[in-house]
Design a protein around this nucleic acid. Structure first.
Lengths: 213, 213
DNA sequence: TGTCATCTGTCATTGACTGACACTAAATTG
DNA sequence: CAATTTAGTGTCAGTCAATGACAGATGACA
């Protein structure tokens, strides 16, 4: 990787760090883009070359997590039922997050604390999640062998995303808290749902029908 | 009601109408607050005395619907299970919407088309819904006789809100479309969920335990 | 009619965000 | 190792949403 790209990455990280720190101390709205840029010795115009908006800087880590989640999902074996595949993807992503270097996990926890304490950012985070929902539905529909505008895959994904949001909503001191809350919610879901609820009503041309478990 | 209040109501309605029309023809971002205000022969400062933001004007009708829904919920008998009470409140609200005068239903349909075709407004609408989620959880938790930070009422509400969002997400030409989509989703939910899933795991001090249905 | 509270317009200001252009430094090529 | 292309950055000017302050207008009410 060339010098140019390394420099860019360093600037970007510095901007995220500066943004998170300022947001957490002075508050999100009270912090101006100019202040963030000044902290990194960069013009505010440059800030907007890295991030589409002030909000984008605060949510960039969450957006990356979303991408990781989606990447996990497409690696899940076709033998898993849709909801199982979604759950396992989430577990895998949480696992990966825990294995990052300290600087990165620090950022993630900071970002999470910030989002949780700033209503407009919480809303923005949910917007991110919902934007991914479309892609999730497409993948789940494919697995189920039904068209993406079928209600069933939409329902499955909506239910799962709801759990994810509840997970995000709760108090989160560290990644362990989050993982624990997530497992509690999965248990609750299992108690509430009929076995096989996420299998296609009219089994389509999808892969192997999973065992009844 | 005095002349003053009537005048105010007229200005407000005119602003909403002008906003919806301009948003739908020129596009949401392409329309400035000044243009909306000019259409009603009012200064843009006045616009912001009626609406907290440009987005607020586009979402004011949706916000009113939310309030109506919540008002319905608190009138549902305690004998209904939480999810049944939520579903019935939604049906009641949709019923009320259909009985409004033509001017009002026209606005509602316009607003819905606009929101559906403008990503940032769709996000804003979901933010509105999510903000209400807290109040819904409080009411459902009360009915279940558990504290509001219990996971179960949160799960029940999250599931219901998810259905509401799916309903909002789909193509909506008129209020009938929406009602039909909503019923389809409820059927799907019933097929997926275990009977009694929304009853408190540890029955608390809540009202009468509903019949098994 | 006269006072009072409320609504409104005007003006000034802040801050997010964008486009245009020039300048610098890295990357690439002969 | 130059020469040239390419990408990243700073500066400047400008738009638009949103807010505070003050003054004038207008319905409410004694």
């Amino acid at each position: 990787m060339g010098l140019r790209e390394r420099k860019k990455q360093r600037t970007r990280d510095a901007l995220v760090d500066a943004a998170l720190d300022l947001f957490l101390t002075r508050g999100y709205e009270a912090t101006t883009v100019e202040q963030i840029a000044a902290e990194v010795d960069v013009s505010s115009r440059t800030f907007f070359r890295y991030f589409a908006s002030k909000e984008d800087a605060a949510l960039s880590l969450t957006a990356e997590e979303q991408e990781m989640f989606l990447a996990e999902l497409v690696t899940r074996p076709e033998s898993e039922s849709p909801f199982t595949a979604l759950s396992q993807s989430m577990r895998a992503m949480l696992g990966i997050l825990r294995e990052l270097d300290e600087a990165e996990t620090g950022r993630i926890v900071k970002a999470r604390r910030l989002i949780h304490s700033t209503p407009s950012l919480l809303a923005g985070g949910m917007r991110l999640v919902r934007e991914n929902e479309r892609r999730l539905v497409a993948e789940v529909a494919r697995r189920m062998g039904v068209p993406p505008d079928d209600l069933q895959p939409q329902f499955v994904v909506s239910l799962f995303v709801g759990i994810g949001l509840l997970c995000l909503d709760g108090p989160t001191e560290d990644l362990g808290d989050m993982a624990r809350r997530y497992e509690d919610l999965l248990t609750l879901a299992e108690r509430s749902l009929r076995p096989g609820w996420d299998l296609p009503v009219r089994p389509g041309t999808a892969g192997v029908v999973p065992p009844p478990r």
